[in-house]
Simulated assay, not measured.
Amino acid sequence: MSRKLGGGKLVIATHNAGKLKEISALLAPFGLECISAGSLGLPEPPETGKTFVANALIKARAAAEAAGLPALADDSGLSVEALDGRPGVYTADWAERQWFEGEPGRDWYMAMGKVEGLLQAKGPDTPRDAWFSCVLALAWPDGEQAIYEGRVDGDLTWPPRGTLGFGYDPVFVPKDHEQTFAELEPAQKHAMSHRADAFAKLVADQFGG
């Protein structure tokens, strides 16, 4: 049985506005005031872990210690069966522009293209099975922590479709659906996503429902 969150402020250990919006919406019913690490001016710690769990804990611990408040970190990514689970923990790294690819920053269309290029290089009959993983790490300033893991399976499509998501959402079609995550209304995506799966486990543990 992990420690329980009370009401009050919870630091969301992210500088990603899209991720903050999603997480805040999922936690809105539980009386928590979500504030981002970015809004507090906290630096982003190097994500040196080799797993989603390790990276989520790095971010949650750093934010909790710096802010003196409970912190929640999400580490998530896309894994492609035919690519031996890549990009996996390097999901965001694949979107980072190299020196010859323009101004520094993340280009998700480029990242989606890298995945597609590798799949096409394997031939037209290559399976396109993929899954999104999400690990949520809760950390308190005194060092206590809790971990919740979620997953959603699907297939990759090309070209990208939809404008409602972020990251690799425009090329991911969840199982038993025809629309990509970026074509689904946010409420539909929240109901089935890897983050929703992990949050359901967090809510059941933290809030008993």
Rank of each mutant, 00 (worst) to 15 (best):
1 M>S: 11
3 R>Q: 12
3 R>N: 11
3 R>E: 15
9 K>Y: 06
12 I>K: 10
12 I>T: 12
13 A>Q: 04
14 T>A: 08
17 A>H: 09
18 G>A: 09
20 L>E: 08
21 K>Q: 13
22 E>A: 07
22 E>I: 08
23 I>Q: 01
25 A>V: 07
25 A>S: 15
28 A>H: 08
30 F>E: 10
30 F>S: 11
32 L>C: 10
33 E>T: 12
36 S>R: 05
36 S>M: 05
37 A>F: 00
41 G>I: 00
44 E>C: 05
45 P>R: 07
47 E>Y: 08
49 G>E: 01
49 G>V: 02
50 K>I: 03
50 K>D: 12
52 F>L: 09
54 A>M: 00
56 A>T: 03
57 L>E: 13
58 I>E: 02
65 E>C: 03
66 A>G: 13
67 A>I: 05
72 L>I: 07
74 D>H: 09
75 D>W: 13
77 G>K: 02
78 L>S: 05
78 L>N: 11
81 E>I: 04
82 A>C: 06
83 L>W: 05
84 D>N: 13
86 R>T: 03
86 R>A: 14
86 R>N: 08
86 R>W: 06
87 P>C: 11
88 G>V: 06
93 D>N: 07
94 W>I: 00
95 A>E: 09
97 R>H: 04
97 R>P: 01
100 F>Q: 08
100 F>H: 15
100 F>W: 15
102 G>M: 12
103 E>P: 05
103 E>L: 15
105 G>V: 10
105 G>Q: 10
106 R>Y: 12
109 Y>F: 10
111 A>P: 13
112 M>F: 07
112 M>P: 07
114 K>N: 12
117 G>P: 09
119 L>N: 03
119 L>M: 05
119 L>P: 02
121 A>W: 01
122 K>E: 03
123 G>M: 08
124 P>T: 02
125 D>C: 00
125 D>T: 06
126 T>Q: 03
127 P>R: 12
128 R>D: 00
129 D>W: 01
129 D>K: 08
130 A>P: 06
131 W>F: 14
132 F>W: 11
133 S>D: 15
134 C>P: 09
134 C>T: 14
136 L>I: 10
136 L>A: 07
140 W>T: 10
141 P>K: 05
142 D>L: 14
142 D>C: 09
144 E>N: 14
145 Q>A: 14
148 Y>C: 09
152 V>E: 04
154 G>I: 05
155 D>Y: 00
157 T>L: 08
157 T>W: 01
158 W>L: 05
158 W>A: 01
159 P>L: 03
160 P>A: 09
161 R>N: 12
162 G>S: 10
162 G>M: 06
162 G>C: 06
164 L>T: 07
164 L>K: 13
164 L>D: 11
165 G>D: 10
165 G>A: 08
167 G>C: 02
168 Y>P: 10
171 V>Q: 02
171 V>E: 04
171 V>W: 00
172 F>I: 07
174 P>I: 06
175 K>F: 01
176 D>F: 05
176 D>W: 00
177 H>T: 06
180 T>Q: 11
180 T>C: 11
182 A>D: 14
182 A>F: 01
183 E>R: 03
186 P>M: 12
187 A>N: 04
188 Q>D: 15
190 H>V: 06
190 H>L: 12
191 A>S: 15
191 A>E: 14
194 H>T: 11
197 D>C: 10
198 A>M: 08
199 F>E: 02
200 A>S: 13
200 A>I: 01
200 A>F: 00
201 K>R: 14
203 V>M: 04
204 A>E: 15
207 F>V: 11
208 G>H: 10
